[in-house]
Amino acid sequence: MIEAIPQLLVNALALGSTYALAALGFVLVINAVGAVNFAHGELVMLGGFVAVGLAATLPETAVLPGLIVLPGVMLALAAVGLVLALIGYAPLRRAPPVSVFISTIAIGLIIQHAVTAGIGPEPRVGPPLIGTGSVELFGAVIARQQLATIAVAGLLLVAVHALLKHTRFGRRLRAAAQDPVMARAIGIPVVLTTAASFAMAGALAGAAGLMLSNQYFVAPTDGAVLMLKAYVATVIGGWGRVWGAALGAFAIAAFETVVAASVSYLVAEVLLYVGVLALLMLRPRGLFGEAEGRRA
């Protein structure tokens, strides 16, 4: 009955890869400071608007407008991530973790309403990564932008993986995440690894925002939903597991697309939350287990 299976799959993969970038940034901050960054959705949204703004400075004839502005967007959002760490986390690093909840909610409010007041409430369309148009694949018409999104997001995921796994910086980052006290004791500059985590979270959010803004537009109120998706992905993937979060993001996107295409959006949404609750009851440490066992 469903004819557009290839399109749906490609869409789910493209959506999942942008969710994965967002979830990755979310979990990096969780690992760095042990607290949830409630402004993360707003960072993704802001990334979309920065992409729109930067693309407007390009000449009309520019090819690959999205790819050209991508480094700029990531850099700008990395800076925003640093500012977030500076004003939202640094003053509260000795306070209870839930204080960071409040400070990031407050910063999220500021970002959302600054965009509404400064740029306007209209939804905007971001630059396409590699121009418009579509290609024929397996007898289906697939938007080139979708394929480019999957490719670019995939490259970024691999790059982050390499950075965390194979560099001294990455090892320090992981060590500091596992045990900040011990890390400090053996001379790892925890301040720097924390700042780097926030900057990377911002940069990845920016990339996700850019890609979403072209495919699905961007409006100032988009943040909350994205933040919720990242949160759910993180829990499905196992709290603190970087790759679990990315996998969780793909799982969400695939689930939503499949159920929405075969039953309805409402059922997809209800089942997603019911599923998460059931998962928490049956496997209280996430689908893929937690990053590290709790010490007694």
Binding site: A4, Q7, L8, L15, Q215, T257, A261
Partner: peptide
């Protein structure tokens, strides 16, 4: 985000 499932 994605309206393709509805259109399909």
């Amino acid at each position: 985000k994605d309206l393709l499932p509805a259109l399909e």
